[in-house]
Nucleic acid binder design. Structure first.
Lengths: 124, 124
DNA sequence: TTAGATGGTATCCTGAGGGATACCAGTATA
DNA sequence: TATACTGGTATCCCTCAGGATACCATCTAA
């Protein structure tokens, strides 16, 4: 199939570059889940740990740091009896709400489909 | 979904379970990018390889197989001079379009933000 | 006193995710 | 003849993501 040469096909499209950039931000196993949990409301460390799968403290701490660096999450230390720390989305982090909503929405449909097919959820 | 109140005091919410399921489907470094590329139109192996980042043949092959198993992508072998293989989204795979659109859209905004801040894109 | 909750950090260690490279068979083009 | 394209496989190899575990200091409740 010759002949389709001269489109603006100089490698990857802007869309693809943008997507790869976005995916870079969400490397690691837990970042999107954390963002999703925080999208509900601000939460403390242990709340997050219970909320998100079986993440270890070390991993949660690490992922949160990276999200903070990327200005998606804000960390606030409260001067309470045992120190508590609150995590919340920044307004920039909030700009991910649509992505998260679509992802969750798809996940819900996917679950129904899986269950309809009779598969068993062994992992969680 | 917005405005959700159901306090789920015992463990993770349905939303979180659904999200974790969805993320499981997209493990690996390239699956979402592949889906994005195929969302544009059906493509052949080498087209995909050029389209998506610097993915190796081995990885592309592997990711495509997994997507096929999950019924997100359909593979068709064409009886041409050198055998060509077409990959396209299944209708189920197509149900991810909104997710992809939101992700790309966010990525584009993110790129602008990064460039505005004067960071340099070293990796691609 | 002991246990629990708070939010972490420091280490150790393993598996697999994934890159690099070579190779294959068939066709075409120069 | 030699090179390049098609869509892959087969190996080798190695980093590092991420799990397990222990630990820390402070405070409260039983």
């Amino acid at each position: 199939m010759p002949g389709k040469k001269a489109l603006n096909l100089e490698g990857r499209s802007q869309d693809m570059l943008a997507l790869l950039d976005a995916l870079d931000i969400f490397n690691g196993k837990w970042k999107i889940a954390i963002m999703c949990s925080l999208n509900e409301r601000k939460k403390r460390f242990k709340d997050l740990q219970r909320d998100v799968g079986k993440i270890t403290g070390k991993m949660l701490s690490k992922e949160l740091k990276e999200l903070e660096i990327n200005e998606l999450v804000k960390r606030t230390v409260l001067d309470t009896k045992p120190v508590t720390v609150e995590y919340e989305l920044t307004s920039y982090g909030g700009s991910l709400e649509k992505v998260i909503i679509e992802l969750v929405s798809w996940g819900l449909k996917h679950r129904k489909r899986i269950f309809r097919k009779g598969f068993i959820d062994k992992k969680r």
